[in-house]
């Protein structure tokens, strides 16, 4: 279902919404679901029966159900009222993976069962929120393309407890999820990619002689995966071969083969991951952005971010 902030919601928004507005919380809209409309229709039928037979118990049943409807309206609204979302974070992912946006929620100390979350462009996630639950809500969003995922809003909705009403609210997001380019392995490490002129005899990744194994990085050729070693634990390993490669390479956008910018970025990503895994220092040269050679994970992440944000 999608949100329909129609005229009905204007009438059905209740007083606490006014309080919410005062406290700067997002508005909660609420409308009957289809079973909700059918329930009201049934109520009308029951009322006709009660009037026709002028039977006070029948009146009581009708009014009790009508009041329950009202209570359900209140409670369904309360499912979302006072629910506020803290900042949203997403770990960077490679294109083709799924980005998980982590949403820290302030439940206001209330249990809120069966709340559906839908991040813009993603699927629905149904969560039972309990105040003592420490896990943030994780919402998947497929990261199909390199760049920055900026879902503009997340929609919460709930029909609990009776399924007669659906309350929903949209919370604007300021979150960014980095999507690194998908690493594309090449036939080796072309020295052309390194603008640094030093031609070392070893130290880079080549194809000639087996050197050892190292941790798997996305984009490694499946042919190179050290299956035997990988089978021992949860981690994957890749076989390394010694070959010709540059030392302290600077990965240069213009030196990578190919014409398509995205392809080039993908290749650069792979080379960068390899350079990082080898433990050496490396730099990145993109049109309009140069990252001086460096080492370590933080440096690698800086470079990957530059690749992700390229052309922004």
């Amino acid at each position: 279902m999608t949100s329909r902030p129609s005229f009905g919601s204007f009438f059905l928004r209740r007083l606490p919404a006014w309080l919410d507005r005062r406290s700067g919380r997002p508005r909660v809209y609420i409308l009957p679901t289809r079973p909700g409309w059918l329930f009201m229709l049934s109520l009308a039928g029951l009322l006709v029966g009660a009037v026709n037979y002028n039977n006070n118990l029948a009146f009581m049943l009708t009014f009790l159900l009508g009041s329950v409807l009202f209570v359900a309206l209140h409670q369904t609204h309360g499912q979302l009222a006072g629910l506020s979302a803290g900042p949203v974070r997403a770990e960077p992912v490679f294109a083709g993976e799924t980005a998980w946006f982590e949403l820290a929620l302030d439940l206001g100390g209330k249990e809120r069962p069966v709340v559906t979350f839908r991040i813009e462009g993603g699927g629905e996630t149904i969560v039972n929120l309990a105040p003592d639950d420490r896990n943030p809500v994780r919402l998947p969003l497929p990261a199909t393309r390199r760049g920055v995922l900026r879902p503009s809003a997340v929609e919460f909705s709930s029909t609990f407890p009776l399924g007669l009403f659906r309350a929903w609210t949209r919370i604007p997001l300021a979150a960014e999820g980095l999507v690194y380019p998908h690493p594309v392995p090449g036939p080796g490490l072309p020295s052309a990619a390194f603008s640094g002129q030093g031609q070392g005899a070893s130290g880079g990744r080549g194809v000639d002689d087996f050197k050892g194994i190292r941790g798997y990085i996305p984009g490694d050729s499946p042919k190179r995966i050290a299956w035997k070693a990988s089978s021992r634990g949860g981690r994957m390993f890749t076989k390394e071969f010694e070959g010709q490669a540059g030392i302290s390479p600077e990965l240069d956008f213009h030196q990578v083969e190919g014409t398509d910018a995205e392809y080039k970025l993908s290749r650069l990503t792979y080379l960068l991951l390899q350079a990082w895994a080898s433990g050496g220092s490396f730099g990145l040269k993109l049109p309009g952005r140069v990252i001086e050679p460096g080492q370590g994970r933080a440096h690698r992440d800086r470079c990957l971010e530059a690749l992700a944000r390229f052309g922004e």
Binding site: G66, S67, F70
Partner: peptide, 16 residues
């Protein structure tokens, strides 16, 4: 829910 519905039920019962 039922307990919460009682006051409104009573009002409707008396006034309808």
């Amino acid at each position: 829910m039922l307990v919460l519905a009682v006051p409104l039920t009573a009002a409707l019962f008396v006034l309808f």
